[in-house]
């Protein structure tokens, strides 16, 4: 039975990190209906900034973690200002194409630094002992990862529900022209959406980097890995990202724990989430918590 609970706990840990990585997609989509294809690159950039501050400048990891979020916040805001601001009002597909171009640009920029082709790892800063209860174990890195994830998700949920800026971001997502007519600055909202997505991406990058080590390909691939989470949760739902992340994490662990290696099966942990995604989308095409818009003419 403890094996079962270990898989559940591991699934929740992995799923919550997926949710944090997926949050960046949701934050941008929620306010601008744009899918940022370059999100994986921003995740990697956040992790590398934190490592550079710690490993090269010598700033303690806790501070560099926060600093990397602040830097990525402004970096993402600048990206929006330079590349995407002029596309406000243009068809969404144009903006998405720009994010594809952005992906190549950020790739190229990272390859100009040592981080593109050299591997690093964060210095150990958490106890290496295990936290065990009832035969189930979790590392400090994973525990801190889960706590940071839930703190950030809680914070963003509050931000969108209660703060004036958050509500204005939701308003822009619903209708840009109507929002402008009531005095909301759409460009400012877009900038903020990108900035907050950058902030969450940096957090995800540092947590993933602590688990896998700092390899550019591995980090940037998480932008795509969490895509099913975003779709399953509903593109514009923070709660959806959390629920879908945990569902995906648990499915992966159960597939790996119970299916792989039995009956000639292998690699089901990679495939099963997509199969479940397809089945759920058959019944809920907008994802578990996505908004189903009905236009009455």
């Amino acid at each position: 039975m403890s094996y079962f609970f270990q898989l559940v706990v591991s699934g929740i840990v992995v799923g919550s990190i997926y949710a944090l990585a997926a949050l960046g997609f949701v934050l941008i989509y929620k306010s601008s209906k744009v899918l940022n294809i370059a999100h994986g690159q921003i995740i990697a950039a956040g992790a590398f900034i934190a490592y550079a501050l710690t490993g090269m400048v010598g700033i303690p990891i806790y501070i560099s973690f926060l600093l990397s979020m602040v830097i990525t916040f402004f970096l993402a805001m600048s990206v929006e200002r330079i590349f995407l601001r002029r596309l406000i009002g243009e068809p969404i597909i144009s903006v998405i194409m720009v994010t594809i171009g952005l992906m190549s640009i950020i790739d190229g920029l990272i390859f100009l630094t040592p981080f593109g082709s050299v591997n690093f790892s964060f210095p150990l800063f958490l106890p290496q002992t295990l936290i065990s209860f009832g035969g189930v174990s979790i590392s400090w890195t994973q525990l801190v990862g889960v706590i940071v994830t839930f703190l950030m998700i809680g914070g963003f949920s509050w931000f969108f529900k209660k703060s004036t800026v958050g509500i204005s971001m939701r308003a822009v997502s619903d209708d840009q022209f109507a929002s402008m007519s009531v005095g909301i600055s759409v460009p400012r909202v877009f900038g903020l959406a990108w900035a907050t997505a950058g902030l969450s991406a940096a957090a995800a990058g540092v947590i993933i980097g602590n688990i896998t080590g700092l390899n550019f390909e591995t980090l940037q691939a998480f932008g795509i890995t969490v895509f099913p989470v975003v779709i399953l949760g509903g593109l514009d739902s923070i709660l959806g990202a959390v629920v879908a992340g945990v569902i995906m994490g648990i499915i992966q662990q159960f597939a790996s724990g119970y299916l792989d290696g039995n009956w000639g099966l292998n690699g089901t942990a990679e495939v099963l989430p997509y199969i479940i995604l397809l089945i759920i989308l058959l019944f809920k095409p907008h994802g578990l918590f996505g908004i189903h818009e009905i236009e009455r003419v």
Partner: peptide
Amino acid sequence: VEVVEHGKDLDNTAMLQRLKSK
């Protein structure tokens, strides 16, 4: 005993415990 084709795993607990049990 087993051939594992890995993915982009963030946690290999299930796989490792399975191998151990075998």
